[in-house]
Structures are given as structure tokens and as C-alpha cells.
């Protein structure tokens, strides 16, 4: 279990850097480090499907985020209620941690998931399939509607992005957005 803790500490350090650094490009690179650490954690937790998918998705979102950050920006407004903002944010974080602490009592310890918890799924799998990836079987057979919903969400994102960033047919002078 010590490897997972090390990877998690690495992810937390990279996340702190990503949140706290001023330069946006450094921040985006740091979140790439967090994503790669997550892929390593998936690999350690015996989920190779998720490790491959996380790595690939991280690369794509990194490219898109770098594309969004390479533009000039005005200096940020530093006025405002600094103390009030920080204290209210810390209040939110503390409330979350208290709820998490309450929830933690109902969860089994790490690694205590029942072996053989996959037995009910296997009864739905056709008997001739002696070999195969169980995650792909779940996604394609027993829970195929989930995959359909995933593809529908992707379609929605495509339509939304095309509608937001289109140029033709927009009246000039600020009616957009």
C-alpha cells in the first residue's frame, strides 16, 4: 500500500503547485502531472483500462488547456475582501472535511472489498465467454445504456462547443455569448 500513498502525496504536491502558482502555463503543466500520477495510481490499483484512458484523456485536455492559456491577459484585480473570501473558503473546506470524516466511519478499510464480488455479474455473462475483459463486458453487455449515455454526452459537448464558438450568423457588436 505504500506505493499508493507515495503517488497520492506526489499528486497532492502537484495540485498545490497547480493551484498556487501565478503563471498559467506552469499551472496547466502541473495539472498534467496530477493526471499522470492518477494514471500511475490506477495502474497500481489493478485498473489498466482506466490507466490507459486517463493518460490519453490527460494529453488531450492538456493540449486544449495550453491552447486556452497562450493569450495575453489584463492584470488581475487584487482588491476586494481578501480576508472574508479566504475565511469563507476555509469554512467550505472545513465543512466538507467534517462530512467526509463522518462518511469515513461507514466505509470498509482499503483493500477489504470482498473477493468474489463479481459473482453476480458473471451469472449474466454468456457461458461460452471463458476469457475476456470484465470491464468491457460490463460496458458493452450488462450496462450498455451507460455507454450510450457517454456517447450522448460527447455529442452534446460537440454541439455545444460548435454552437458557442461559431462565427457565421452572429450579429456584430456584442449580441454574442
Amino acid at each position: 500500500m505504500i506505493e499508493i500513498h507515495l503517488v497520492l502525496i506526489f499528486m497532492i504536491a502537484a495540485a498545490v503547485i497547480a493551484v498556487s502558482v501565478k503563471d498559467l502555463l506552469s499551472s496547466v503543466v502541473a495539472i498534467g502531472a496530477v493526471g499522470v500520477g492518477l494514471a500511475m495510481a490506477f495502474l497500481l490499483l489493478k485498473a489498466p483500462d482506466l490507466a490507459i484512458l486517463q493518460l490519453v484523456v490527460e494529453i488531450l485536455s492538456l493540449i486544449i488547456l495550453v491552447h486556452a492559456t497562450t493569450r495575453q491577459d489584463l492584470p488581475f484585480s487584487t482588491s476586494g475582501r481578501w480576508l472574508f473570501n479566504t475565511i469563507s473558503t476555509l469554512f467550505f473546506v472545513v465543512v466538507f472535511l467534517m462530512v467526509a470524516h463522518k462518511a469515513l466511519k461507514g466505509i470498509p478499510i482499503v483493500g477489504a472489498s470482498l473477493p468474489g464480488a463479481v459473482q453476480p455479474i458473471m451469472e449474466n455473462v454468456p457461458a461460452k465467454e471463458e476469457t475476456g475483459n470484465l470491464v468491457a463486458t460490463i460496458l458493452m453487455k450488462t450496462r450498455a445504456i451507460d455507454t450510450l449515455g457517454e456517447v450522448a454526452a460527447l455529442f452534446t459537448a460537440v454541439v455545444g462547443v460548435l454552437a458557442i464558438s461559431r462565427k457565421i450568423g452572429r450579429t456584430g457588436g456584442g449580441n454574442g455569448l
Binding site: A47, G116, V135, I138, E150
Partner: peptide, 13 residues
């Protein structure tokens, strides 16, 4: 002695 695949499918989505 196999890892539970259902959370993995959910997390993939």
C-alpha cells in the same frame, strides 16, 4: 481474489 470491476466501469464513464 479479483478486483471489483463495477467501480472501474463507472469510473471509465
Amino acid at each position: 481474489n479479483m478486483v471489483d470491476p463495477i467501480p472501474q466501469a463507472m469510473v471509465l464513464v
